[in-house]
Amino acid sequence: MKALDLFAGAGGWDIPAHALGWDADGVEIMPEARATRAAAGLKTVADDVRDVDPVPGEYDALIASPPCQTFSAAGSGTGRRALDAVLHGVRLFGQGGVRPTYAELAALTGDERTALVLEPLRVALASRPVFIAWEQVPPVLPVWEACAEVLCAAGYAVATGNLSAEQYGVPQTRKRAFLLARRDGQPAALPTPTHSRYYSRTPDRLDGEVLPWVSMAEALGWQSDLAVRSSVGDGGYNKPRDRPGHAPSPTVTSKSRSWVLRNGNQAKACERTTDQPAGTLFFGARLNAVEWHLRVTNDRPNTAHRPGTAPAPTLAFGKSRPEWDGAAGEKRPLAIEEALVLQTFPADFPLQGSRTKQFLQVGNAVPPGLGAAVLRQLR
Rank of each mutant, 00 (worst) to 15 (best):
T273R: 09
D51V: 02
D48Y: 05
E271L: 09
V260H: 03
A285C: 07
M30I: 04
E58C: 08
G233W: 12
D111C: 09
L179C: 12
G9S: 10
A3S: 12
A154Y: 00
W134P: 10
R262F: 01
A38T: 09
P193S: 05
G185Q: 11
T109A: 10
V130S: 14
G245S: 04
A316D: 00
D234A: 04
Q95R: 12
T36A: 00
P311A: 00
K357P: 01
G161N: 03
L340G: 01
R183Q: 15
T303S: 15
V27E: 12
R286W: 07
G326M: 09
R229I: 14
H195C: 04
R205V: 05
V98E: 15
V150F: 09
R201T: 15
D225M: 02
A3W: 05
V210M: 12
A85G: 05
P139S: 04
A46C: 04
S164F: 08
V49H: 06
C152M: 13
V117D: 06
P307A: 11
T314P: 00
K268R: 15
R257C: 07
M30P: 01
V210D: 11
M1D: 12
G308Q: 03
L20M: 09
R379Y: 14
V45P: 10
R113G: 12
L4E: 10
V143C: 07
T36E: 08
N238Y: 07
R183L: 01
R379K: 13
R34M: 11
L375E: 13
A85T: 02
D51A: 13
V86W: 03
A159K: 11
N162W: 02
P67K: 06
V214N: 03
A304L: 11
L190T: 01
